[in-house]
Amino acid sequence: MLQIDDVRVRIPVTGGRWVEAVGGVTLSVGSGEIVGLVGESGCGKSTLGGAVMGLLPSGSQLSGQVLLDGRDLRGLTAEEYRRVRGNDIALVSQDPSASLDPTFAVGAQVAEAIRNHRDIGRREARERAVELLRAVGIPDPGARYSDPPHRFSGGMKQRVVIAAALANDPSVLIADEPTTALDVTIQAQILHLLRDLTVRTGTGVLLITHDLGVVAQVCDRIAVMYAGQVVEQGTVRDVFADPLHPYTRALLDSQPAAHHQSGDLPVILGQVPDLTDPPAGCRFAARCARVHDRCTAAPPVVETRGGGRVACWLHDALPPVAQEAS
């Protein structure tokens, strides 16, 4: 469905230099599947989302392939991309207020999302919008159709954004920190809704988040990013039960939830490398508790027993990942 293959993104910064925000990522999202893309600030997870959506900062360089249902999105013109966005792929971002026009009725905004991509009449679009608002759990959707966004709570606004995103049955939804601005009981409602909709519609979701707990709650698979690269991916069960990459392990260990008693939390010392000049070998090596001479060379990407993959010299006895035919 969505196949990201060796994607690299370079973004121009001042002084004629480039930041390699995404440094060769291979990842897929299947039908009805929720894949969690996790990492800390600046790891490139949102830039990767932008690469898929065709929404990179101007002047950025993108290489590799982004295949949606077998079609390479990389060569699309701006106009072609506009037709793909909101139709084949849709975006739900962190702040629902920024996604909604404050001066228009929420129902009309959902109806417009439909009419932008389909040749149907106003009445039919309105009926479909009401149906969508009902599907995302807006109580009394017929009456709320005409309300402007400010009459809705943050959680309810995010439901409206999800309704608009799903209006044209996209193959893939990119959800970038969709619940980060919400209270925890409301977050649980929205995550449950996302899960429920993917099962019913078959839409695949790339869920970009900093929160490993959110991944455990709703994702099928997880990909962990560090300094622009995916260091480990696999099923949520495999990766959480037995993280193979030292960064994944350190990230899980530093969560307070993993330590029900007091006492110091394990920390990751040092700083993220400067991505205007990324290190040649493993990018985590300078902070890794298990660093070794070999880490100055790029680590092999190997296949784990559960069918996941990990990029680390500690596991070079595992079989290398076969190059995918592209």
Partner: peptide, 8 residues
């Protein structure tokens, strides 16, 4: 119950 806990 609602708190996301990073456990499998």
């Amino acid at each position: 119950d609602a708190v996301p806990v990073p456990e499998p």
